[in-house]
Nucleic acid binder design. Structure first.
Length: 844
RNA sequence: GCGGAUGUGGUGAAAUUGGUAGACACGCCAGACUUAGGAUCUGGUGCCGUAAGGUGUGGAGGUUCAAGUCCUCUCAUCCGCACCA
């Protein structure tokens, strides 16, 4: 194709002033034809398949893959336009580029669609995938076609289930009963990470707690490493994301010790409990403990309720606390006394026990020592219930005041042998003291919880376990994988369809062969996205045989994915899980590195009228409609030009039109370049001023393009540079300069507007210019320099000097041209900044 | 409350990292060509001022010959986390 083109835009160019109607009609028609034919060309030539030659230097460019919701939205377009620019750039530079795409295709929306309009989740999903693949193509994205995958493919499930079995064997996956976040609307369990402000991350319903069996990944075992390895990502990842992960993991050091009940309290508890353990990061405040508090869900509290050891009023209050939504629970502190006492481990004084709503069951041990004098929460609670407040830390050089809690570090008092120490020393000494006496120990606590992964849903990867009456939980044999989903399924939205299926769950125990039941829970879809980037490394010819090979991983994942691009909304969930899986796979011997993503680029949101595009707000712009009207290149150019990638992007119809007009001019003016298959040789010295200027601008644009891809990601300035070069070219008429200019500029712009550039390049340069371009230094050498002259730092005039002019000459010229500002003044200082300016400091 | 960012024309944004603020584009204004057409081309466009000039990067100080950039304080907005013991 390409060569026989009759030129898109041609109608307007030649006849534009003749006939508006046909002009614009043909224009659009031609853009579409041109884009489509290049898309066919790339498909036919398999232009974007990575090579298997592992001696070549590689770049792995990855976008976060989409959920196949039906159609692409502008956020997707931004995401893939970015990764495509990287991929195309590195291909030009001669790298072996892996730029794959897939679909994160399990998940609730497929089932919700099934409930709503009776479609089968599988059909719904794969129809959407087909449609979206078409959209990728129409946007000219240079994805590897041969590595496309959907995580709901049985082949993908097969290997994933294999990994799950490996992890179970290693003890990294376990089953336990626990209080789980349950979404009553989605009828499923949610991970902590999926609960946003007490609501379901997907449907926004209030999340309730439910007591049930569920599988967990032991991500906490990697808590320390997930935290400490964050420093390896510094520089490559946005600071914000690193901080968010750090906070999420939430490591804190402190003292854990046991508070023991006094005799009377033990008796009341039927001698079932000796005491309970608490954790504190402030052991220096231990002499200030004036009460202790248990979470309403604490086992001691449950025991007392179950055995009627509390009056009905108290039980009622505790139940209220438990049932309050997490938002309500934060509103006001409340609690009840249990009429139990523990003995202070150091002072031996008796300390009352309360149940308090601000104590969280899922952090630490679900119980705290309370030091109202030095903790805001404990203080509020003590004030409300009139509990004693005992100060033991005072600000350095000041007295303690009981008006409000003093939460800073300071100097200890009323703390027996630790008096006079500062907080930091005291913390170490008190921990030491507890350890010596074997009544407590130094402990690290994490906010990070184990990752609950089972979902009571159909459209997910089945957990490959079998429940056998005799053998317990038995793993499926790997040769039986995948445990695939049944297709004849009824989806009503009530309960788990796999559980309700008449035959699917009935099987034989893989160990002893008797009748057994399959696990009907499926996995959280974040499991699939935790290793898809590794699957892309696998050569498609071995796809059936293995998930990926060590050799392939080693090559493509060297230093991690080179550029990983996606939304900030995955800063915690997906990125943390993927890091966890990488470390687990390393420990399972599948790979040999610690971190999966070397460089992460988090793109900003796409806004319209100042708000995030969303269907409910009715402010969406449909990518297909933009392509239809202006073509893919216009959409791509606008997206990269309007703002730097990390910032929010405000959609602007006028600016889209502007992008379209630029492409049109860019194409039309290529008429000024002649046909050649190598870059024109130009004797720079023989050029006139405008010609030299044009060349300088062209090469400046080239220089600018370089660090955009490696450092700054500011495609907007790269494109501005090309526009400046175009403007400069247009001021001169040397066809060598035009041709050289186009040779380079189409190369620079190809990652952004590939269709247009391949079209121009095929017409003029036989595609030979779409490779790395060399910078020529001589174009930057100036005959004269323009220096600014400022008086007292205020810009006044400009002077033109020879590049080798001495400072004396420059200053003399500056004085002369700025003489009107110097009259009657004394020059007290003269500063020459080479190639920049002259500053004269004067006074009256 | 804690943490991370961001504040520059009418708008989206630049500024080689301390050196002539506003590149590039949108919009707007004027003009040209015209079957006045929402096309194309040319010129202008931070603000005040006819001009000379003054003034200007959220605000207030400071360092410096020179500050959007460095320091101190402060205000505003956005994002994340949040009773984490």
């Amino acid at each position: 194709m390409g060569h026989k083109t009759f030129g898109f835009f041609r109608k307007t160019r030649l006849y534009g002033s003749q006939n508006n109607f046909t002009g614009s009609f043909n224009l659009e028609y031609n853009v579409k034809t041109m884009e489509k034919s290049w898309q066919e060309y790339w498909a036919k030539k398999r232009s974007f398949e990575p090579s298997e030659d592992f001696l070549k230097e590689k770049k792995y460019i990855l976008s976060m893959f989409p959920f196949p919701s039906g159609r692409l939205h502008m956020g997707h377009v931004r995401n893939y336009t970015l990764s495509d620019a990287f991929a195309r750039y590195y291909r030009q530079q001669g790298f072996n580029v892996l730029h794959p795409i897939g679909f994160d295709s399990f998940g609730m929306p497929a089932e919700n669609a099934a409930i709503k309009n009776g479609s089968h989740p599988k059909k719904w999903t794969y129809d959407n995938i087909d449609y979206m693949k078409g959209e990728f193509k129409s946007l000219g994205f240079s994805f590897s076609k041969e590595r496309e995958l959907a995580t709901s493919d049985e082949l993908y499930t097969k290997f994933e289930q294999g990994f799950i079995i490996d992890m179970y064997e290693k003890g990294l996956l376990y089953r336990k009963k626990g209080f789980l976040n349950w979404c009553p609307s989605c009828h499923t369990v949610l991970a902590n990470e999926q609960v946003i402000d007490g609501s379901c991350w997907r449907c926004d319903s209030d999340v309730v707690k439910k007591d049930m069996n569920q599988y967990y990944f032991k991500i906490t075992q990697y808590g320390d490493e997930l935290l400490s390895d964050l420093h390896k990502l510094e520089g490559g990842w946005p600071k914000q994301v690193l901080t968010m992960q750090e906070n999420w993991i939430g490591k804190s050091n402190g003292l854990e010790f046991k508070l023991s009940f006094d005799e009377k309290s033990q008796e009341r508890l039927d001698s079932k409990f000796e005491g309970f353990s608490v954790f504190t990061t402030r052991p220096d405040t231990i002499y200030g403990v004036s009460y202790a508090a248990l979470a309403p869900e604490h086992e001691i509290v449950s025991y007392m309720i179950e055995n009627s050891l509390l009056d009905s009023d108290t039980i009622h209050k505790i139940k209220e606390m438990k049932n309050a939504s997490s938002i309500d629970r934060q509103k006001e502190k409340s609690g009840v006394a249990l009429n139990l006492h523990v003995v202070h481990p150091l002072t031996k004084k008796h300390v009352p026990i309360w149940v308090a709503n601000f104590v969280l069951m899922d952090y630490g041990s679900g119980a705290v020592m309370a030091v109202p004098a030095h903790d805001e929460r404990d203080f509020d609670f003590a004030k409300k219930y009139d509990l004693p407040i005992r100060g033991v830390i005072k600000p350095f050089g000041e007295e303690f005041s009981a008006d409000k809690p003093f939460t800073d570090v300071g100097e200890l008092f009323d703390s027996e042998m630790f008096n006079g120490l500062n907080s930091k020393e005291a913390q170490a000494k008190i921990i030491e003291h507890f350890e010596d006496k074997k009544i407590g120990k130094k402990t690290t606590n994490f906010k990070l919880k184990d990752w609950g992964v089972s979902r009571q849903r159909y459209w997910g990867a089945p957990i490959p376990f079998v429940h056998c009456h005799d053998c317990g939980i038995v793993m499926e044999k790997k040769e039986n994988l995948p445990i695939a989903l049944p297709e004849d399924i009824v989806i009503t939205g009530e309960g788990n369809p796999l559980d309700h299926h008449p035959s699917w769950k009935h099987c034989k125990c893989p160990k002893c062969g008797i009748d057994a039941l399959r696990e009907t829970d499926t996995m959280d879809t974040f499991v699939e996205s935790s290793w898809y980037f590794l699957r892309f490394c696998a050569s498609p010819k071995n796809w059936e045989k293995e998930a990926f090979s060590k050799e392939q991983i080693k090559y493509w994942m060297h230093q991690g994915v080179d550029h990983y691009i996606g939304g900030i909304e995955h800063a915690i969930l997906h990125l943390l899980y993927a890091r966890f899986f990488t470390k687990v796979f390393r420990d399972l011997g599948y790979l040999e590195f610690d971190e999966p993503f070397g460089r992460l680029l988090t793109q900003g949101m796409v806004l319209k009228d100042g708000a995030k595009m969303s269907k409910s707000k009715g402010n969406t712009v449909d990518p297909d409609a933009i392509i239809e009207k202006y073509g893919a290149d216009t959409a791509r150019l606008f997206i990269l030009f309007a703002a730097p990638p990390t910032q929010e992007l405000e959609w602007n119809d006028n600016a889209v039109e502007g992008a379209y007009k630029f492409i049109k001019r860019f194409y039309e003016r290529s008429a000024n370049a002649y046909k050649t298959d190598k870059i024109p040789f130009i004797e720079h010295a023989k050029l006139n001023k405008e010609e030299k200027f044009a060349r300088k601008k062209v090469y400046e644009a080239l220089v600018r393009a370089e660090d955009v891809y490696t450092e700054k990601y500011t495609f907007n300035t790269m494109i501005a540079g090309v526009m400046e070069a175009m403007n400069a070219l247009n001021l001169q008429s040397n066809s060598d300069v035009w041709s050289e200019g186009y040779w380079i500029l189409t190369s620079i712009m190809e990652p952004v507007i590939p269709h247009t550039c391949w079209e121009i390049s095929s017409q003029k340069f036989s595609l030979a210019n779409l490779v790395q371009q060399k910078v020529i230094d001589e174009v930057f050498v100036e005959n004269t320099l323009i220096l600014g002259v400022s008086i007292n730092g205020k810009a006044r005039v400009e002077i033109e000097v020879a590049p080798d002019a001495s400072n004396d000459v420059i200053i003399a010229m500056a004085k002369e041209s700025a003489s009107r500002w110097l009259e009657g003044k004394i020059i007290i200082k003269e500063i020459v900044v080479p190639k920049k300016l002259v500053n004269l400091v004067v006074k009256d």
